[in-house]
């Protein structure tokens, strides 16, 4: 309804100059063209400006503040402090936690993705892919509490196992530890792995299976020499995504452990919340800069692996 009105109604606006279609003299053409190009660039401004102000400025300010002392003078003291004691330990613990969480999730995720892609049951397939999409985006505080209800001190499973004669807390298990966090993180890492791995597994071609078989390869040999090498780049890329995800996670760890386990995000958080000793004014920024460096390294590895992966799976 109501589409045609007078031509005056056309509002060129920031989205481009459709009103500037009028024929002009030869001399005006370059200027006209230049104006058009300038207008064509205008549409990018709001978005880029927004990301610049609310993401890049904060990130850059963290990095620059990390190199300053409380009075704004340049110093390396913050990094020196960040690389010692509890803070160094928090980096090691964080990296360990993220690494092992990602390894477990990667293995389980691949097996699940293989199981899903090879099933012919449509309901199972759509259930798993929709479920993965949902669970991969679940995290944070509610997740922590649902695990407290399951394997916490008085969790349903804990109590059940105890009544069956197995006291898991007496055998060194604790939900409120790095081991516990590793298990909880699986809840969003495994679905993420499944989501990432389904497309490359589906891209494995029947011809490759047939070819290896007609050359006399056993099923084990197919996986050893064809399947796994082909899937390795996407697996590595996915592993890096999982690692980064686990490394940056804050809410689940904070809700579950109230900051008792030294993890980098937790340490940064407690520095923000005001648990700052004298002379540590910008220590949090140094830790934050350290986090960015870790994620950046992961990102570069990801880009490298992706480039190799795209050679095969096209």
């Amino acid at each position: 309804m109501a589409v045609i009105k007078s031509a005056k109604d056309t509002s060129p606006g920031a989205l481009g100059g459709l009103g500037s279609e009028t024929p002009q003299g030869k001399d005006a053409a370059p200027l006209h063209k230049r104006r058009r190009r300038w207008q064509n660039g205008l549409g990018a401004v709001p978005f880029l400006a927004y990301v610049g102000i609310f993401l890049l400025i904060p990130a850059i300010s963290v990095v620059t503040t990390a190199f300053q002392d409380a009075h704004g003078k340049p110093t390396m003291a913050n990094f020196n402090e960040a690389a010692h004691g509890i803070y160094l330990e928090s980096f090691i613990t964080s990296i360990k936690l993220s690494f092992f969480s990602a390894v477990i999730a990667a293995i389980v995720g691949i097996l699940a993705a293989l199981a899903v892609t090879t099933t012919s049951n449509r309901i199972v397939r759509s259930l798993v892919s929709a479920g993965s999409g949902v669970f991969a985006n679940t995290g944070g505080v509610p997740l922590a509490f649902s695990f407290v209800a399951t394997v916490g001190n008085f969790g349903v499973l804990t109590v059940f196992l105890k009544s069956a004669g197995l006291d898991i807390y007496a055998h060194g298990f604790s939900l409120y530890s790095v081991m516990g966090l590793t298990i909880v993180y699986q809840y969003f890492l495994i679905p993420l792995m499944i989501l990432i791995m389904i497309p490359p597994i589906q891209a494995l071609r029947k011809e490759w299976v047939d070819a290896s078989e007609s050359l006399g390869a056993s099923r084990l040999q197919f996986w050893r020499w064809v399947g796994i090498p082909l899937l390795m780049p996407p697996i590595l890329a996915a592993f890096i995504v999982l690692f980064t995800d686990a490394f940056a996670a804050y809410a689940t760890a904070e809700a579950l452990t109230s900051g008792t386990i030294p993890l980098v995000p937790i340490e940064v958080g407690s520095l923000i919340s005001g648990n700052v000793l004298a002379g540590q004014a910008n220590l949090g920024d140094a830790l934050g800069a350290g986090m960015i460096v870790v994620v950046m390294i992961a990102g570069l590895l990801y880009a490298y692996v992706q480039r190799r992966a795209s050679r095969w799976l096209r």
Binding site: A59, G288, M291
Partner: peptide
């Protein structure tokens, strides 16, 4: 990481 964004 969102913790770093907050700090920033």
């Amino acid at each position: 990481p969102s913790v770093v964004v907050t700090l920033g």
